[in-house]
């Protein structure tokens, strides 16, 4: 994610001056949204699982995210879209504190998980990540057997005292992979195709039964057939899990998500609303331009 490919005309001001006048924003925003720089749209989300309040992320001296305000609804798919370098992956990684692993990353502001700020001193990021699983852009199975890959999360979390076999099979079934690998659970996860590897990684993420699954462009390294399988799978997952997915593909966001957040260059969340609304009638001109392919 580099921020240096932003188009020249996109100055990193908080709101594109050409988009919508301030008065219009005020009209449209619900009275309760107190923050000055919340995104356009901002649908009411009752009892959100994750709430971001004025979240800034810095990499060294570079600010990657500016005052992100949004809520992630339970058991729905929330898509984060936007051009390269817009901070959508950074936001995803700040939810389960994967940014802690980067020495130069610094987070300011609040991010609540069920009302508890995950950046409080008494929150253990390891415990947090046990509640919030993650699937990465490139399939990254361990050089272990398919079985051990899925069981790994159970083992590190000490959930391997019960019926591990059953949990592994359930996870593989939820990841729509069981039928394809049933007879080769002892074989290396690396021998699977790219699409199967990614579904294996999804199985690994959901085996310990987290509440939220974060996905960072999970299909961008896959061919169209494998992509469509992953998309179907995400749809099913949302029945049990809260899914937050970063994607490059607007079509993908339109197909699979309930809510869509549009990040634009410089790390600003410009508009967040129901997916239908974003794609059919966005409030921001910038978002409309982006959606219709005028830039990005």
């Amino acid at each position: 994610m580099t921020a240096n490919n932003e188009p020249a005309e996109m100055t990193p001001n908080r709101r594109g001056p050409e988009s919508v006048s301030t008065s219009e924003i005020d009209e449209r925003r619900s009275a309760s949204a107190a923050a000055d720089d919340g995104p356009l749209g901002s649908p009411r989300v009752s009892s959100p699982v994750i709430e971001s309040r004025d979240l800034d992320v810095f990499y060294g001296d570079t600010q990657a995210l500016h005052g992100i305000e949004m809520e992630v609804p339970e058991r729905q798919v929330t898509a984060l879209i936007g051009p390269s370098g817009c901070g959508k992956s950074t936001f995803l990684r700040s939810i389960n504190r994967m940014n802690d692993l980067i020495d130069v990353a610094r987070v300011e502001g609040d991010l609540y998980f069920h009302g508890k700020n995950v950046y409080d001193d008494d929150v253990d990021p390891v415990a947090l990540r046990r509640k919030i699983g993650m699937v990465f852009q490139k399939p990254n199975p361990f050089p272990k057997s398919i079985y051990d890959n899925v069981a790994y999360g159970l083992r590190v979390q000490g959930k391997d005292d019960g019926d591990v076999d059953e949990k592994v099979r359930t996870a593989l079934e939820q990841a729509a992979l069981l039928d394809e690998v049933e007879d080769q659970l002892d074989e290396s996860g690396l021998d699977l195709s790219g699409g199967q590897q990614q579904r294996l990684c999804i199985a690994r993420a959901i085996a310990p039964d987290p509440e939220v699954v974060l996905m960072d462009e999970p299909a961008s390294a896959l061919d169209p057939v494998a992509t469509s399988k992953i998309e179907d799978l995400i749809d099913d997952l949302a029945e049990e899990y809260t899914v937050v997915i970063v994607t490059h593909s607007m079509q993908q966001a339109a197909r699979i998500s309930d809510k869509t957040a549009v990040f634009l260059t410089g790390g600003h969340l410009v508009e967040f609303d129901d997916t239908e609304k974003i794609f059919e009638n966005p409030e921001s001109q910038q978002v409309e331009d982006y959606i219709t392919g005028k830039f990005g």
Partner: peptide, 24 residues
């Protein structure tokens, strides 16, 4: 990516080093 995979399922740093980094 291997380290992240392990951190992602809630491994501690020691578990990541023991299970993923050292074998590799």
């Amino acid at each position: 990516s291997q380290r992240q995979a392990a951190y992602g399922v809630g491994a501690t740093q020691w578990q990541v080093i023991r299970d993923v980094v050292l074998p590799r």
